[in-house]
Design a protein around this nucleic acid. Structure first.
Lengths: 209, 209
DNA sequence: GTCTATACTCTGATAGAC
DNA sequence: GTCTATCAGAGTATAGAC
C-alpha cells in the first residue's frame, strides 16, 4: 500500500504519533500534526474530537506495540538465563528501531500514571510467573539468593536507560551519534553477560564472554 | 531563615523549580508559578524577563546541584569497588530526596541537548579518569575484561532508572508507594553487590552480601 | 519593588459552505 | 469528508500607577 492510498485517519495517526513522541502532549501543536499529515487542522477534530482523545489513542497504541512483546518474553517458559539473553536481544532491537518511545512513555506516565495503569490491567500483567521462576532457580542453587524485583528492575534498567539518557551519556562519554548506536547494539550481548556473571553460582560452568 | 524572610527573587526561584520539575517547560504556566510563590504574575517578568530565561536559571541550578557530587565521586582517588559503593550510596540518597529531578533532566535534555552540553563543558567533565582506572584494574586482574563505557553506563542506569520509571515499575510489580521507596533505599547496597559480583575476578575473596 | 489593567499572540475547537 | 473563517480562552509580556 503506497502512502497515497492511506486513509485520512491513518495519515493523522501516523503524523500524530511522530509529533507526540517527539514533543510530548504539552509540546505538540495540533497545527503541526496537521502539517505533518498534509491535511487541514479541523479534520483532526472531525476524526478525533479533541487533542486529548487523539493523544489517548496514540498512547495506547504505543504501549500496546511494546507491552505484549516484553511481557511475552518475561512470561515465556524458557530457562532464566535464556530469558535474560532473549529479553536483551529483542528489547534492544526494538528500541534501536524506536529510540524515542521509552522517553515518551516514561515522561507521559510520570505526568499521568492512571492512563498507563489502566492499560496494564486490561492486559493482565503477571509478574508472579517471573517471580516464581527466580525463586525456584535460587532454591535449586543455580543463581545466588536475590530478590526477583531487583533482578527484573536491573534487567530492564540496563536495557532501557541508555536509550533515554542518550544525549546525556553520549556527551558525557564524548561519543558520536554513530558510535553511540554501535555501543547500544553491542549491549544486546553485553548486558546478559553482565547479569549472568553476577547471579550464576556454578562458577565452574562455561563462562559467557 | 524563616520563609517570610526570603526575598521575592528566592520565592520565585523556589516556586519555579517546584513547578518546572513537576510539569516541564511546556507544561508549566507562569500563573501557576506566581500562585505557588504567592506573588503577582508580572513580578516574574520583572525579575527574569521571560519564561525561557527563568527556565534557563532553574535548569542550570538543577544540573549544578547534581553534577559536582556525581562527577566528584567518579573522579575521586579511591579504589574501583569503593567507588561503586560510594556512588550508589550517595547518588540514591540524593535521588530519594529529589525523586523528580532525573525525569525532569532526562526529559528536558532530550528536547534540547545543547543547554546541557554547554553546562557540562563549563564544568570540564573528565571521563578519562574513570576510564583509566577501569583499564588498570582489568590489567591488574582485579576485574574481568570489560569496556569502561559499559561499566559506567550500567552503574548509572541501575541507580537512576528505577526512579524515572517509578510509576511503571510500581504498578507492574504491584508495590505500594511506601514499599517502592523501601525497595529503592535497599538498592544502595544491592546495586554494588550486583555489579561487583559480576566484574570481580578473584572469586575466592570475601563475597559481598 | 509591587500591583492592576491590558495588549498581543497562540492554540484548541466550532460553524458553515461546498 | 474537506475546506475557510472565526471564536473563545489561555498564555506571555508590557504599560503605568503607586
Amino acid at each position: 500500500m503506497s502512502e497515497a492510498d492511506l486513509t485520512t485517519e491513518q495519515l493523522i495517526l501516523e503524523a500524530a504519533k511522530k509529533v507526540f513522541i517527539l514533543k510530548g502532549l504539552d509540546g505538540t501543536r495540533m497545527q503541526e500534526i496537521a502539517d505533518e499529515a498534509g491535511i487541514n487542522k479541523s479534520l483532526l477534530h472531525y476524526y478525533f474530537r479533541s487533542k486529548d482523545k487523539l493523544f489517548e489513542v496514540i498512547f495506547k497504541e504505543t504501549v500496546m506495540s511494546f507491552a505484549p512483546r516484553i511481557f511475552g518474553v518475561l512470561n515465556s517458559q524458557i530457562s532464566l538465563f535464556e530469558k535474560i539473553e532473549l529479553f536483551a536481544d529483542t528489547y534492544i532491537d526494538l528500541l534501536i528501531q524506536n529510540p524515542f518511545i521509552p522517553g515518551f512513555l516514561v515522561n507521559e506516565v510520570a505526568k499521568n500514571p492512571y492512563r498507563f495503569v489502566a492499560i496494564l490491567k486490561m492486559n493482565g500483567v503477571h509478574p508472579n510467573i517471573m517471580r516464581n521462576q527466580i525463586r525456584k532457580e535460587v532454591e535449586a542453587g543455580i543463581i545466588r539468593p536475590m530478590k526477583a524485583e531487583d533482578l527484573m528492575a536491573n534487567l530492564i534498567s540496563l536495557c532501557v536507560f541508555p536509550f533515554i539518557a542518550k544525549n546525556i551519556f553520549s556527551s558525557m562519554l564524548d561519543m558520536s551519534e554513530e558510535d553511540y548506536m554501535l555501543f547500544l547494539a553491542a549491549r544486546k550481548t553485553e548486558i546478559p553477560t553482565f547479569i549472568i556473571n553476577s547471579i550464576k553460582l556454578n562458577k565452574d560452568a562455561k563462562t559467557i564472554v
